[in-house]
Nucleic acid binder design. Sequence first.
RNA 1: GCGCCUGUAGUGAAGGGGUUAUCACCUGAGGUUUCCAACCUCAUGUCCCGGGUUCAAAUCCCGGCGGGCGCACCA
Length: 578
Amino acid sequence: MSKVHIMTDEKRIERLSAMLKRRGIVLPAFEIYGGVSGLIDYGPVGATIKRKVIRNWIEHWTINGDIVEIDSPTITPEPVLIASGHVGEFNDLMTQCVKCSSAYRADQLAEDYHPNPDMLDSDEIDNILISNNIECPNCGEKEWTPSRPMNLMFGTKIGAMKASRQAYMRPETAQGMFMLYPSLYRHFRQKLPFGAIQTGKGYRNEISPRQGMIRLREFNMAELEYFIDPKNPPLVDISMKKDNVSLIPDPKGNEREVVKLSFHDAINQGLIKDRTVGYFLSRTWDFLMNVGIDPSKIRFRQHEGTEMAHYAEDCWDCEILGEHGWIECVGIANRTCHDLLSHEKYSNSNSLRAWREFDVPKIESKEVLAPNTSILGPVFRGKAGLVLEALEQLKELPNTLPFQLLVNDGTEVEITSDMVERKIVSKNIAGEWFTPHVIEPAFGIDRIIWHILDHAYEETEKEGEKYNLLKLSESVAPADLIVLPLFEKDGMGDAARKLNSTINSMKGITSLIDSSKSIGRRYARADEIGIPWAVTIDHTTLEDETVTVRRRDDQKQIRTGIKVLLNLINSGNISSLF
RNA sequence: GCGCCUGUAGUGAAGGGGUUAUCACCUGAGGUUUCCAACCUCAUGUCCCGGGUUCAAAUCCCGGCGGGCGCACCA
């Protein structure tokens, strides 16, 4: 990742983090036992925000019907991750230069001294480093720390004792979608394109988790695998996408400059090469708008060849600017057929393909030597199968019979004219099997939530005092509204409780109630956790069934009837009051 | 993993080898109050963990754990 130095306001991060902790949004996990780096809790307020972000994400992708949700285990048997490449990629031995602390893959240092260094264990490879006086490429020193495997996956065992199988906590949810490909293919009536999404936990045993919620050891992922026929890519229409976005394309000419273009133009000008990738970039943009990310703090950056993941053919990151600088929050990769092909190879399954029908069936006719098995069989006995195979594979037919046929076991046999019949066979070929390509948008939910909070957090002043508010989008706010009795007495408290339970009985609507301390303080508390609307019950309410509705973002208040308000809440349209 | 800095109520801070660790805000109970963190009374709650030095450790030392930054690593 290119280094980006942004002036970050560390004090603001501290104040924001303190608020998140104080208000039960995001907290360090296991804190009474000292905490564990890279693990966090979402508290009573944060868990709701997280759930709403994920729900928005699921609805965003499933709305067209071509994408379905699945859910698979986090514990994954080793062969799956061998096929996916994770075991190989993650099990490298690392060593460090004692002098300058540069870290290297030990097998790469030992490359010239052993034919197959990645097969060695750490003692063997340490010996090679010492006995060959291998120098540190950085400082030239020849002293190395003992090498150790840098396995970024959490290992575990399925079952006990001898019967147990090696397994890992999944490092990504994507493999679950590939495992279910056969089921998805049937579900979608064997027609591409289609996709599957999954949200859930992923695990990476990071060497040094940093930056709060940015690099976690257990984190929330949301991934989409969209399967396409590369020869008939889906028709996507993004002509409506006129918003200008910031793009940093991979330069052929070594320029890494931000280009402001609409997705539509970026595709038409060839800046985004794959239309389908472009479509998902624009849909990603839409999602980030929905959950309240600041559009001026988003950019899409194409990976350079060297940083491309081991599977990806083309890759764009969506980066979001926050207090930690530009952070990769979404990766959109064209993984091509890599995963399905690899699983097909390792699992011996033949159901990881799709059928492509030709527009016009192909008629293939060729001249063959059709075997007469009643003669061939008795003559060649055990070898007959090999002979048949060799006959079928024959590229050029002999002009005359008998002839010498080379069989797969290296021997030659004589084929006489009574054993075969020369004839022309024609075959009607309606289509072909192929391995679909897959486009993968992968979202880091925790990173997105951090930026939602970061962008929504506003520090202002009110009558000389500091005043914080969280201007969350209604779609991710921890509650839709809060009901506040001006006072507990004279029946206002009862009226508030009644209204609150009426609102909460509406499907999908969450209302809170708060009656402790002064009204100003309660507004402040609600503002700080981002509740967009406050409904206040006062003396007038008791007389004429009206309440005041207060808008978080400008503290404006409007008086309206309870019945009118209930209708607006139900239709999600409170803002039309203002 | 290395280096530098760091850890005191829920939050933010002060202090510091010796009686009962200080302050503000927050939180809770009661009072007061006719819409934006008001006020009064009372209450709850803290020295990250382990070891060492010492008559005595929250304070000094060592280690661990956590946090921040830099280097390295990072799908």
